[in-house]
């Protein structure tokens, strides 16, 4: 059980959280050769509405495929924060989009990283919709749960042709954000 690592990505439909989960878990399962599952839950709408994507990574075969006590939680909307923050363990890494989650995260949560993911995507890449990829770069750098090469390979496999450079840059920006906003976590 010790090797089981769980990630929950929570936000709204259209933010690319399902795709983000697929890329991250595929990096672990196919390119790092471990075991991983990716599951999701969303409403009937194609955009808007609550959306959640979960990744479980393990050295053994994953029995229960959903996150039960996630090690990393990404909060991409205020509604996601309200719903999922109370379910977080106190030492989970909690990443919140600094512009989309305005309310305060109580100090009992020790490992909180507030990053303007969407703003970074918009201002530095010019495309708001790669905020999910910025988040993947950030999560990877903070946790090292998948290798950098594997994540990039998995990313390039799942994105539309012609957006490679854009997405690679987004991943790199996520990595940089880990040092800018998450040094307290990197230091352990």
């Amino acid at each position: 059980m010790a090797q089981r690592f769980e990630i929950r990505l929570a936000g709204s439909g259209g933010q690319g959280l399902v795709l983000g989960g697929i890329i991250f878990s595929e990096a672990a399962a196919i390119y790092d050769g471990r075991h991983a599952t990716q599951t999701q839950s969303y409403g009937p709408e194609s955009r808007g509405g609550a959306s959640k994507s979960e990744v479980v990574i393990s050295d053994e075969e994953v029995d229960y495929p959903k996150a039960t006590n996630p090690d990393v939680v990404l909060l991409f909307t205020e509604a996601a924060k309200e719903k999922y923050l109370p379910l977080c363990k106190k030492d989970a890494i909690i990443i919140a989009d600094a512009d989309l989650v305005k309310s305060e995260i109580p100090s009992e949560y020790k490992r909180v990283v507030k990053v303007p993911l969407t703003r970074i995507a918009k201002e530095s890449v010019g495309r708001e919709f790669v905020a999910n990829i910025v988040a993947l770069g950030l999560i990877r750098e903070l946790t090292k749960v998948v290798s950098e090469e594997s994540l990039e390979k998995a990313l390039l496999k799942r994105i539309p042709k012609g957006t490679e450079e854009l997405n690679k840059k987004a991943l790199q920006l996520g990595k940089e954000a880990a040092y800018k906003y998450g040094e307290h976590i990197l230091k352990g």
């Binding site: 878990s25 399962a29 991983a36 599952t37 599951t39």
Partner: peptide, 9 residues
Amino acid sequence: EITAHMREK
């Protein structure tokens, strides 16, 4: 829905 939409190896 889980076995249908879940991704794994």
